[in-house]
């Protein structure tokens, strides 16, 4: 009776977005009298941080501080259409729509500034701190608050912009499956190290190493959140989760959190993750979807690590102690 250690590998790709009947999202943006930009959406934040990352996109394009952006979502009376938050589409679709809207608003912003400063709009730049200034003559500048006030009360212009991103409808060819279902692919490789207790069949994930390529990490902190939480969910799927533990039999279905088991804080492995960036042409600043895929590679990596540890090939999820023990028994003819 012993604890047996093993290491397993898995490498995966994951599509960003879908093409169901055409896949659009829209954004509207406008400046308030004092130079705050309100991004109006109907998109949903599930906790992945969409509100944060689209505000970053708007701030980057407008050349203003992040604090100048407010995101107003999700109300179908006030926000333009969004297909929804699924298929790793949120950051990609909504981010692109916000960039387009902010680009249009930026043009107006610079035109208003040009009139105020009596220069050509093409000679202007933003400094990132809230000023529009003349390139090469930075002392000639106007703050966004003064600029927005002038637009409202002097020039009579709306500083606003409209944006939409549409992945066009593409029907699969029935005979061959030819189709264009997604916008780009993110990538991951996971290495899992597990300990298998050959007496109890319990598998403990000791360490997980993850390498992800996600186009662009728009906000490295929220990327890290997805990486860590997703790897945990993958491990949870691998070792614990089933609403029908004896599938296809419907019996023994867990009814609550005392029966539907997931790893607790005490069960988490050490995680080491690296993020690589290969910007996608279609992505907002090159970003691909990261949220969904993080749960995928850990599952086969753990399966392969269990095999490496004790020679048991588990082909049915989840990898419960019962299945590990049955596998060990089969190996020894027990």
């Amino acid at each position: 009776m012993a604890i047996r250690r093993g290491r397993g590998y898995a490498a995966v790709n994951y599509p960003t977005g879908m093409n169901l009947g055409g896949d659009p999202s829209q954004a509207l943006i406008h400046a308030t009298t004092t130079g705050t930009f309100v991004v109006s959406l109907s998109s949903v934040d599930l906790g992945q941080g969409l509100k944060t990352v689209v505000a970053q996109c708007a701030a980057e394009v407008l050349g203003l501080p992040y604090g100048n952006i407010l995101v107003d979502t999700a109300d179908t009376d006030t926000g333009p259409h969004c297909m929804g938050t699924f298929a790793s589409r949120g950051t990609h679709r909504v981010g692109n729509a916000v960039i387009m809207a902010a680009t249009e608003a930026r043009e107006v912003m610079l035109a208003v500034a040009a009139d105020e400063l009596e220069v050509d709009a093409g000679d202007l730049e933003t400094d990132g701190s809230g000023f529009v200034q003349v390139k090469g003559a930075e002392q000639k500048r106007i703050h966004i608050t003064d600029l927005a006030l002038a637009a409202h009360f002097k020039q009579g212009r709306t500083i606003s912009g409209r944006g939409i991103f549409l992945k066009e409808k593409n029907d699969p060819v029935p005979e061959t499956g030819e189709m264009d279902p997604d916008s780009c692919q993110a990538h991951a490789c996971t290495v899992a190290v597990v300990d298998v207790d050959d007496e109890t069949g319990v598998v403990e994930v000791v360490t997980m190493y993850n390498a992800y390529e996600i186009g662009r990490a728009l906000n490295p902190a929220t990327v890290a959140q997805q990486v860590e939480g997703g790897a945990w969910m993958g491990m949870s799927h691998a070792l614990f989760e089933a609403t029908e533990p004896y599938y296809p039999a419907r019996s023994h279905g867990p009814a609550d959190f005392s029966e539907y088991l997931m790893p607790t804080a005490a069960d988490i492995p050490e995680q080491h993750s690296a993020i690589l960036e290969r910007p996608a042409e279609s992505g907002p600043f090159g970003a691909k979807g990261i949220g969904e895929m993080t749960a995928n590679a850990p599952i086969p990596a753990i399966a392969n690590a269990i095999y490496d540890a004790c020679g048991v090939r588990l082909t049915a999820m989840p990898f419960t102690p019962e299945r590990v023990l049955r596998g060990l028994d089969a190996l020894t003819g027990g």
């Binding site: 941080g49 509100k51 944060t52 505000a55 970053q56 996109c57 701030a59 980057e60 050349g63 501080p65 992040y66 995101v71 990132g128 662009r216 990490a217 728009l218 906000n219 490295p220 902190a221 929220t222 600043f285």
Partner: peptide, 10 residues
């Protein structure tokens, strides 16, 4: 300036 920076969640 903003993209790629650690930014507090809204």
């Amino acid at each position: 300036t903003v993209i790629g920076s650690v930014t507090q969640r809204a």
